[in-house]
Each structure stands twice: as C-alpha cells, then as structure tokens.
C-alpha cells in the first residue's frame, strides 16, 4: 500500500509537570498533503518528534494504517528545520545512506538516487559535499535522501524556514512536483500562510492550551499548481483570508493566555486588514 492513513488519538506529551501537547487528535488522509499551521509554542515540533518516534507520547497513541507506531522507523521520516545532511558524505552518498544502512543497495538503487537528485535539480552536484551546495540545494538533497526510503508518511518540520523569498518559491515548486509524483502521505509544518495555501490539500490550524486542531480547511485547488496560477486565483485568496481570520482569533486567545509571541501576528494582521475582519471572524463562530 503506497498511501497510508496516520491517526493521532488523544495524544498527550508532558515533560515533568509541563504539558506540552495536551489531548491532541487528528488524522492524515492517505496520499494527501496536510499542512499544519499554528501560533509558535503550540507544540508543533513536539508533535513531529512523537510522530517520528523519537519520543513516546505520555498518553494516547499514533497509528499507521491502524498499526501502532512505536519508535523511529523509515516508515515515518522527518525533514528538519535546518539541514541535517551528513557533511562527510557527498550528495549522492547522503541520498544512498538509508538504503545502505538497511543493506539494500543495487544498481537500481543508485539509479533511483540519481533520478531523485535530478528531479530536485541537483543531478549535476551528486559528487559535491553539502558545504559546497547552497542552502536551497541542501534542503532539496535532503528531500531526496528521505524520499528514496519511500516512507509511508513524510513529516516536514518548517523545512524552508530561513531561505530567502525567491528560493522558497522555487522550493515549493520542486517539493510540490515531487509530492504530486509520488502520491504519498505528507505532513508539512509551517508558519507561512502562503506556503500553506500553495502546498496543502488540507490545512490544520492548531490551537494551544491544550494543543488541538482548531479548524480544518480543505484546499480544493487543482493540481499541479504553479505560482503563476495561484497568485491570480480568487479561491486561493479566499482560503488564505479564511485561514488568517482563524489564526488571528487564535493568536488573540493565545496572547490572552500569556503568549507574547502572538502579539506580532496580531499587530501585523490588524495593520493589513483592519479590525473589521477580526470581529467578523469572531462573529462567525
């Protein structure tokens, strides 16, 4: 089965007496790209570590196609915020790391690795070390390194954070193309609303205290997507506005709960849309 359904049920994660994730439930639909967006400090990165199996949840469970997921596995691979390519391996060796570690390498694997590198636009750099590549290229090689393992679910934790705007848009296109081709289940974490709308099939808007899914927005935009069509698309703008309204509302709550980081978002939102939109969102519920 190529596409898997991942279910998160009543997951709680506490460190000592601090509850970082509290009673969180959601599902990742098979073959869909789910984007998770939410205010900072709402436990997104902790959820990533739980999904990847780096840490066990304190309560509740995570299942892949109904089978409980325990510990790290190449079923569930993570692309971290900053590059975690092995600096001592060439791009190609990095991509081949997973298959080699499991002792499954033949000519076909090497061929597949090269194919993936070409697909992310790094074919000519197969023999280069990570330090010889640009930041954007490093992320793409890392994407190829994960994809060669054909994970049941790919988890991307703000992978394009810190890249400049143009590089970021280029990354969206490479990534969307790769996703559309493989058709596997993906979870993409971000704080960037444009990124979310461009990539997502579904957007999960998270709330904190306790961490839970605040709203789900189905992004019914056609694939394949390109920046040109997205900019002019009314439906895309509508989805973006809808998501921003909910996020603004959530930030207000989060700020009221003592989260100072939420204030920046509220300020920029109100500068952009005025208070009218904010009150409209509150009335909608």
């Amino acid at each position: 089965m190529i596409s898997s359904r991942i279910t998160v049920e009543n997951v709680v994660k506490s460190y000592g007496s601090t509850k970082v994730v509290g009673d969180c439930s959601f599902a990742l639909e098979p073959g869909k790209l789910t984007v998770m967006i939410g205010p900072s400090g709402c436990g997104k990165s902790t959820l990533v570590r739980l999904l990847a199996g780096f840490e066990p949840p304190s309560e509740g469970g995570i299942a892949v196609d109904g089978a409980p997921a325990v510990g790290p596995s190449h079923d569930r691979l993570v692309l971290f915020q900053e590059t975690a390519l092995f600096p001592w391996m060439t791009a190609l060796d990095n991509v081949l790391y997973g298959p080699r570690a499991r002792g499954r390498v033949n000519e076909h694997t090497v061929q597949r690795a090269m194919e993936l590198l070409h697909k992310v636009g790094c074919g000519a750099f197969a023999q280069k070390y990570p330090t010889q590549l640009s930041g954007g290229m490093q992320r793409r090689v890392e994407l190829a390194r994960a994809m060669i393992n054909e994970p049941k679910v790919m988890i991307l934790d703000e992978p394009f954070r810190g890249l400049d705007a143009l590089t970021k848009e280029l990354m969206w296109q490479y990534y969307a193309a790769l996703f559309e081709e493989t058709g596997r289940t993906h979870l993409f974490i971000t704080t960037d609303i444009d990124e979310a709308v461009f990539l997502a099939d579904r957007i999960l808007i998270m709330a904190n205290k306790p961490t839970r899914v605040r709203a789900v927005i189905d992004v019914d935009l056609p694939r394949p997507r390109s920046l040109e069509t997205m900019v002019a698309n009314d439906r895309a703008a509508e989805i973006k506005q809808q998501a921003l309204d909910i996020l603004h509302d959530e930030s207000l709550r989060s700020f009221a709960g003592g989260n100072k980081a939420a204030l920046d978002f509220i300020a920029s939102y109100e500068r952009r849309f005025g208070r009218v939109a904010a009150s409209a969102a509150t009335e909608q519920q």
Binding site: A52, P72, S73, H74, R76, V78, F86, W88, Y97, A101
Partner: peptide, 27 residues
C-alpha cells in the same frame, strides 16, 4: 555531534555498528 544525525540514522534503520562506522567516526 549534532544529535539529529543520530535521529536521521535511527529513522532510516541503521544498526549501532553502522552509526558508529558511518556517523560517529567521520564526525
């Protein structure tokens, strides 16, 4: 050594010997 290297290796199914030989030693 960046702990994420170990997490990547464990995720991809590396054995302890592989982690030593291919991660710890070169790092």
């Amino acid at each position: 050594i960046d702990p994420r290297y170990f997490e990547v290796a464990r995720s991809m199914g590396a054995t302890r010997w592989n982690v030593f030989r291919r991660i710890i030693l070169p790092a």
